[in-house]
Design a protein around this nucleic acid. Structure first.
Lengths: 237, 237
DNA sequence: CTGGATCCAACTCTGGATCCAG
DNA sequence: CTGGATCCAGAGTTGGATCCAG
């Protein structure tokens, strides 16, 4: 049976984990067929395909805006393309970088930031990412649930505070992908053009290029390994 | 020739008027055919059809957001469905009603409001509105350019100030279509459901039903007549 | 008659991410 | 390798208005 009870919202983390682990070993093509969906030929033209395929299967509140994928559980799902040797090939998108004003003031402080909320409980779902494997033939890996430990949270917070200092000062131009040891800020959206509201260096509202927070691949890789190790010691988490 | 130089942006009001007047007497069906577009069978299913058909013909900066239809000229185009006896059958939509907070503060004062900006120069395009005439057979009338005279502006402003007082106080529930002698506020959008951001009576941001400003039919009718009379006295405007 | 309800097209915005030149 | 550029789906919003029950 693949997948079990499709579309039903999982009530507990264990139910969610059980369900996603039943998918391990299957290919994207098999999962898509089960759902009556066609796999795009070019990965380049369907970058979010696997993530969007998985959401309804696992019972995520599909495409709800700005809420965790599994709202009741407070769990965020992230698919991670892995290389042949088991390390993430890409950075992981977290959320957009808000402006310094108005509705998004809470985003400047780590404690109330969307970054922290998004990352407080994550379901990592590894997927083969080797570009030589056709999309339909890539296999799903063993998912793990993760919460940052003290060390991980400190790493994230340190970068976050540094990055937000640029936002506070309106120094958007200096806020590049080079900053941050584990968390970085990069452009988001399909043109690099003006797409988001921000605050310029004189405090006025202005259109600026949309940007997002991303986890560097090494951090995501470590998070997945740590989650695996911890689950071996505490089988039910 | 129908229409002249389709798609080109008019450089002067005279050029715009000349162009739109060449359409007078033609039917919607003839205009649509000239553009290779099909006329919907049901008016009910294509409420904005004529207005959207006309925009590219006249060289409006199509569907640009929140700017005048003819940006360079500062001219707003409005189609008006007329009865057999030559009076407007429907109210005329002006713009949305903004909330009382943040980005839209300027909307509370007549001088800086979007209502005033939208109405400071309008190209009225009459169209037969009699529901017994099939959409494709309805004829285009003689368009006129209009600017509110002192009396008209005072009428508008009086209503506007009254209506905005309700917004300032967050008394949205009392802001109904019954208010306003020539300018009213009515629901906008396709469900009456929560669709816009506003400010509730305790000053918090909240979702409220989307609303818009509308000109009552009698006012629009008078505006068109006045514009006609004035253009007889001053032929070039 | 008319105030509340409704309809479509097009563009924007968000959430899902991967591509690829240097 | 990796930082900047880019791609898709689907919800949301705006601008174009008219419908229609009471």
């Amino acid at each position: 049976m693949l997948p079990p009870e499709p579309g039903r919202v999982p009530r507990t983390e264990e139910e969610l984990l059980t369900r996603v682990r039943m998918l391990a070993g299957y290919t994207i093509g098999q999962l898509a067929e089960r759902l009556g969906r066609k796999v795009p030929e070019e990965t380049r033209r369907a970058k979010g395909f696997f993530g969007q395929l998985l959401e309804p299967v696992l019972g995520a509140t599909a495409s709800s805006r700005s809420t965790p994928d599994f709202e009741r559980l407070g769990v965020e799902m992230k698919t991670v393309p892995m290389s042949k040797v088991g390390v993430p090939l890409e950075s992981t998108y977290v959320c957009t970088v808000g402006g310094a004003g108005l509705e998004t003031r809470g985003d400047l402080d780590w404690g109330t930031s969307r970054v922290r909320h998004k990352l407080c409980r994550v379901l990592w779902v590894p997927i083969q990412g080797d570009p030589t494997i056709p999309l339909a033939d890539r296999r799903i890996g063993a998912a793990v649930l993760w919460t940052p430990d003290e060390n991980e949270e400190q790493l994230l917070r340190r970068d976050f505070d540094e990055l937000m200092e640029y936002v506070r000062l309106g120094r958007w131009q200096e806020l590049t992908g080079h900053l941050g040891a584990v968390l970085q800020v990069r452009p988001k959206g399909d043109s690099g053009g003006a797409q988001a509201w921000g605050v310029d260096d004189e405090g006025r509202r202005a259109k600026i290029p949309a940007r997002g927070f991303y986890l560097r691949p090494a951090f995501t890789g470590g998070a997945i390994r740590n989650a695996l190790n911890r689950s071996r010691q505490t089988p039910s988490a």
